[in-house]
Structure formats: structure tokens, C-alpha cells
Amino acid sequence: MNDKIYKYCLITAVGLILPVGVGIFLTLLWDAMPAFEKFGVIEFITSCDGNSVAEGEKYGALPYIVGTLATSFLALIISVPFSLAAALFSGEYYRGKRFAGIIDSAVAMLAGIPSIIYGLWGFAVLNPILVSMKLSETGYGILSASLLLAIMIIPYSASLTKEFIMMVPSELKEGAYSLGATRSDVIAKIVLPKCMPGIISTFILALGRALGETMAVTMVIGNTNFLPKSITDTGNTMASIIANRFGEADGLQMASLIAIALLLFVITFIVNLTGKFIVKKLKA
């Protein structure tokens, strides 16, 4: 009797998650259709928005795809040394010490700060710094967005990397030490190679986070719809163009924005799935 109620509850919960998940995909696909029908999928992905009257109403996702990939990969590259250092700090050098716990909590706090506050800080503090360092004229642009994103993803890759570092069996390390290796030898030749697949997967997952990040990027990237030529150029990401335009969009423009959302969804889904898959394989 009781177990029936139990099953009923669970099936209800499942009956919710499944349709929501499938519904998200189908909704995006359905509402993006007008844009794909009008421009063609390949053309849509590889072209820019029209900017002359002669072209009529024309939209293309290329600058935003480029903007998203550029900011995310740049952020990833910037974040690598910091995440690795933080992971080695609390997972190897000061493992189990109180100090490591404090550093871990502080890094975790970075993950707790809302995106909108990163954006505000980037706009009011980081941009003027970039201007004064003559790295950019206004501060706005790919560089500023990438720096913010890098800070935002460090906590994720640092904590997961630390887990992998701590999983390296101590016998392996002791073996190396007993042959006279220094700590840096052990880290460079035993620990890091041993968890390299894990570290790569954590960076894939961090990339997944960066790809979809919206508010912080929208507030500092400058919001222009040209193809960015260098990292100091302004631009837009797929997420930021939606945040900027969706409110006033209708008709074909809205369908185009939803088409961009669908592309973003597919990219993040594949990236996350790959990362999770590797993590699961390694942890098992």
C-alpha cells in the first residue's frame, strides 16, 4: 500500500523532468524553424546580420558564434594556471591543512557571486583598469569579457582538478620520492600526467559554463554585431545578443534569436556531455 504511494510520487517527479527536458529542445527547434527555413542552416551559421536596406531583413549567427568561442576559449586559457595552482595548493602542497580549507572556501565564494555583480564590477572597475593600462580604448570588448569569465570559471575547474589530484594513489608518489625525486618532480612527472585526462575534462566542463554565461558578458562586451577582428574589439556572444535583443524582437528576428539559442544549447550540451562522460569514466 505504502509502496504504491511511493511509486506514484516518484513517477510524478519523473513525469515532470522528462517532458520539461524534451520540451525545451522541441520548443527551441519549433520556434527557430522560421529562421532556418528563411536563411538555411548553413547560411545562418556562416553569415552576419544584414546592414543595408537592399538586403532586407537578414540575420546571421556568425559574429555571435565567433564572439562566444573567442571569449570562452580565451577565458579558459587565462584560467588554467590559476585553477591548477589553486588545486595544487589545497590538493597537494597544503593538503588537509587548515590553510587549504580557508583557500578552498575563498575560491568557492568566487563561484557564489552572482553573474550580475561580476558584470557590474567589470563595468565599473575592470574596464577603467583596462583603459588606464592602454589595453583598450573604452574597456568594453572581448578581452574584458574573457577576463571576467576566467575569474568566474576558476572555482569550478579548481575544485574538480583538486579532486583528481587527491585521487592519485600515495604509493605512486612514495615510489617516486623513494627514488630521490623532489616534490616538483613528483608533481610534474607523476601527479599531473596521472590526472591529465581528469584535468582536461574539468576544463571542458568549465568551458561549458563559460559558453552560456550571460549577464556579466553582456555588461562588458560592448554589444556590437560585427565580426570581431581582435581581442580588444567589441562584440557580442550568443547569450548576450539574446539578452540584448530578445525583449524588443518579434517575427523573424525573434525566430533568429531562438535559432541562436538552439545553437548555443546544442554546443553547451555536447561540451557538457563530453566533460561529464570523461569525468564519470575516470571516477568509476
Binding site: I24, L28, L211, G212, A261, K276
Partner: peptide, 24 residues
Amino acid sequence: VLRMIVDMIQGLPSIILGIIVYLW
């Protein structure tokens, strides 16, 4: 399958969720 969907929703950029709820 459910675990994959849960992961998918968790990794979904929040702005896309905004679009979905706008439409729904």
C-alpha cells in the same frame, strides 16, 4: 536518460531557460 536530461537542464545557459519560459 533522466540523468542525462537532468544534467542537460543543469548545464542549460540560463538565458535559454528565459526564452523557454517566455514561450511557455
